[in-house]
Design a protein around this nucleic acid. Structure first.
Length: 551
RNA sequence: UGCCGAAUGGUGUAACGGUAGCACUAGCGACUCUGACUCGCUUAGUCUAGGUUCGAAUCCUAGUUCGGCAACCA
């Protein structure tokens, strides 16, 4: 199914190839480990494609595992959304759905094992005070009091932590590693904290919860993950990942870091996206302007296109920022191939064909896809009064211009050749109506005498047109990297023109569109019927314009 | 000033000591009943300085620049 990822080569696959060749590994097991504290975005899509794609390439398996170690931040709401998004992207975890919370018992046992080995201790220093002992990057830390408590004492203390005999935050379990380590993460990191919060899976069974560094490597180890891919910021955590597993003497997966996906003109941080949602700067997580999977889906992006992008951007350790144009290209590529054509006018200008009978209605058959015969044809009604795009008329048109100008013959797509004879303007000189004549001999759009017209424009019969709400989207931000200016809040760069709502004139067949149906409105762009659409009140989202420079 | 990591056209990536290639973008042109699609062409790159080698993007040395790390977040 998904060959997008499995065909590309990258440094991670080089590592796996070597591991398989040397016999270090005999199978490939990966995992996608989201924390259910927000919605998935296109950056996660890269990780999902990498995790599932790598497993598929090597005939292994990929687990979907929710990293639910912090009940304060997590919510069931996100779990179903994440599952839906992964599925929609085209990946299947089969029976391999896991939870960090599945392993809370084991993690507790492992913590006890560390204490027994003299490798962990209970630290009752207030958080703020421990900072002083940890030191700063350029100077070593110092050993905090209590670090050399006896094993028995630590066992008793940890037991009490578990049993709820201490207040939240009163103490933590720490790994006993090296307060002078040049790597801050090795200066006795916290393993367990006390937090009285109801967990969505385990309820109130626990009042202590494991920290990421302790939990994640154990989750990987228990599941037999061979290659644990994560983003670059975890690079400095790797020594700790390895230390915990080695000290525990359990199966040791290999953590491999790669750079996250960044796109121009948007932000990819869950926290920042949450800010936009909370401050109602966008209409929810699935707002079509959001880089979330659900937002992009609602806007009309296909899973195919997103997977294509994830394959094209590759996978390296270089912190890059990919031009959003590459995404646009992937989307257009897929939509051009797979979406049916329709005619719609987004900025209507009335056209009256003076020599066309007032009460006549003709029906024309037009293809649904220019390159695909099998897509079939549909009929569209034609009558004396039409809507065309406002910018398909110009007073003094340059030669390259494709629309009407007085005296120039233009093809009305699939119908007739027509010539504009007169333009009616309002007081400000803005055209409000065109008067035209048509050539009855050009029915269907071609002239029997073989004369050429250089332009074809789209139109909708005024009598039959259906009004629709159309939401036009542009880039969410006005600058390539909204987070790039440390002096300014990223929200200052929000693009006020990123959403424009207009009323468009649709050809009548479009009222049959169901939410999610995608079309190319010819010469205008790709559009997707919104969740809100109904036959009575159609609503369409513009996914992208066509690649073009209309005048 | 500590530790970890990364530098190849505008952007993203490939080349694993042997012709620096691909995609996107941009520009030009052809075709066209969509200014779409398709097709053709063009601009443009190995961070710097030394070294090893017949030969270096690739190996070595020294710099430079950029990113990450001091939650009881993940």
């Amino acid at each position: 199914m998904n060959n997008d990822e499995s065909t590309v080569s990258n440094f991670i696959h080089d590592i796996i190839d070597a591991d398989l060749a040397s016999g270090k590994r005999t199978e490939v097991v990966t995992r996608f480990p989201p924390e259910p504290n927000g919605y998935l975005h296109i950056g996660h899509a890269k990780a999902i494609c990498l995790d599932f794609g790598t497993a598929a390439k090597y005939g292994g398996r990929c687990h979907l595992r929710f990293d639910d170690t912090n009940p304060e931040a997590e919510d069931e709401e996100y779990v179903s959304a994440i599952k839906e998004d992964v599925k929609w992207l085209g990946f299947d975890w089969g029976e391999h759905l896991y939870w960090a919370s599945d392993y809370f018992d084991t993690m507790y046992e492992y913590a006890v094992r560390l204490i027994n080995k003299g490798k962990a201790y209970v630290c009752d220093l207030p958080q703020e005070e421990f900072k002083n002992y940890r030191g700063i990057p350029t100077e070593p830390g110092t050993e905090p009091p209590g670090r050399n408590r006896s094993i028995e004492e630590n066992m008793a203390l940890f037991e009490k932590m578990k049993n709820g005999e201490f207040a939240d935050g009163a103490c933590v379990l720490r790994a006993k590693i090296d307060m002078a380590s040049p790597n801050l993460h090795m200066r006795d990191p916290a393993l367990y904290r006390i937090k009285r919060a109801t967990h969505h899976n385990t309820g109130d069974t626990w009042c202590i919860y494991p920290m990421y560094d302790f939990a994640h490597c154990i989750e990987d180890s228990i599941e037999g993950v061979t290659h644990s891919m994560c983003t670059l910021e975890f690079e400095v955590h790797r020594p700790l990942y390895d230390w915990i597993l080695q000290t525990l003497e359990v199966f040791q997966p290999q953590q491999i870091e790669f750079s996250r996906l960044n796109l121009t003109y948007t932000v990819m941080s869950k926290r920042k996206l949450l800010e936009l949602v909370k401050e109602k700067l966008v209409n929810g997580w699935n707002a079509p302007r959001m880089p979330t999977i659900c937002g992009m889906r609602r806007r009309g992006f296909t899973a195919e296109a997103i997977r294509k992008l994830c394959g094209l951007v590759g996978c390296t350790k270089f912190e890059s920022i990919t031009e959003v144009e590459l995404l646009e290209s992937c989307v257009r590529d897929d939509l051009n191939e797979n979406s049916l054509r329709a005619m719609a006018v987004v900025d209507p200008l009335k056209v009256v064909i003076e020599n066309y009978p007032a009460d006549l209605v003709e029906e024309f058959e037009v293809p649904n896809h220019p390159q695909k015969e099998e897509a079939g044809k549909r009929t569209i009604p034609f009558s004396r009064e039409l809507w065309i795009e406002h910018d398909d008329y110009m007073d003094e048109a340059p030669n390259k211009f494709k629309g009407f100008t007085i005296g120039r013959e233009v093809r009305l797509r699939g119908a007739y050749l027509a010539t504009c004879t007169e333009v009616i303007k309002d007081a400000t000189g803005n055209p409000i109506e065109l008067r035209c004549t048509y050539d009855p001999d050009t029915k269907g759009g071609s002239a029997p005498d073989g004369r050429k017209v250089k332009s074809t424009i789209h139109w909708v019969s005024a009598k039959h047109a259906v009004d629709a709400e159309v939401r036009l989207y542009e880039r969410l931000f006005t600058v390539e990297n909204p987070l790039g200016d440390k002096e300014k809040d990223f929200k200052e760069f929000l693009n006020p023109e990123s959403l424009e709502v207009i009323t468009a004139k649709l050809e009548p067949a479009l009222t049959k569109a169901q939410p999610g149906d995608r079309f190319q409105f010819e010469r205008v762009g790709y559009f997707c019927a919104d969740l809100d659409t109904t036959a009575e009140a159609p609503v369409f989202n513009r996914t992208f314009t066509l690649r073009s420079a209309r005048m």
